[in-house]
């Protein structure tokens, strides 16, 4: 992971998800009004996951611990900063998901659930101001998308590394030989 340029990854992810300084400021402005409602979002999120048999398997005996981590992350969406250190944390989260063999669709599925559960909280925080709610929803879409993009980046890298390890173990090739082979064809 040391060769990942998190500053560049942050820039790339922000450009892809439209996470502008204005949106970042809005998320932080919303923080005080939104944060009190986030524990409910976390509860509903895990309640929904437990209803999905394929997902429930990964939660057995870990829900309370996962909820605490999730609540902390959810709060960070409305406190910031949304910088390279945040990207690095999300990257590590992606790595953890790879290590527990979480299917890749769980990340996008989970983010969709979270976004959906956040809407009523945002509506409450925006005092039924439709314009502000639209802006808030757009900002949340951007930060959730940003987080997802970074996690998928690490997921992809982690999966490739995992597949390569399998290949090396099966073929009996050393990593040095594989690197030399790749270098010979990378010219």
């Amino acid at each position: 992971m040391s060769n990942i340029d998190f500053v560049e990854l942050t820039r790339y992810a922000k450009s892809f998800t439209g996470l502008t300084p204005d949106k970042e400021a809005l998320l932080q402005q919303l923080g005080p009004a939104v944060v009190p409602g986030l524990s409910e979002v976390t509860d509903k999120f895990y309640a929904t996951l437990q209803q999905i048999p394929k997902a429930a398997v990964f939660l057995e005996g870990r829900v309370e611990h996962l909820k605490r981590t999730h609540a902390k992350w959810l709060e960070s969406l409305f406190t910031g900063p949304y910088d390279d250190q945040y990207a690095q944390k999300m990257y590590e989260v992606g790595n953890v998901h790879v290590k527990v063999n979480l299917p890749v669709e769980f990340m996008s599925g989970g983010m969709t659930l979270i976004q959906s559960e956040l809407l009523p909280v945002l509506a409450g925080a925006c005092d039924n101001d439709a314009g502000r709610l639209a802006a808030a929803a757009s900002a949340v879409t951007s930060i959730v998308g940003f987080s997802l993009l970074v996690m998928q980046e690490s997921y992809q890298t982690g999966k490739l590394a995992e597949e390569l390890e399998k290949f090396l173990a099966i073929s009996g090739m050393s990593r040095t030989l594989f690197n030399n082979l790749a270098a010979a064809y990378g010219k």
Partner: peptide, 27 residues
């Protein structure tokens, strides 16, 4: 490891590729 130690190859044949491919096949 796939590195060339000595070679008498036809002109135009890439030594690095011959080396790495040979070692990979042997492995």
């Amino acid at each position: 490891d796939g590195l060339m130690m000595a070679a008498l190859l036809p002109a135009g044949m890439d030594e690095d590729r011959v080396g790495a491919m040979s070692a990979a096949m042997l492995s």
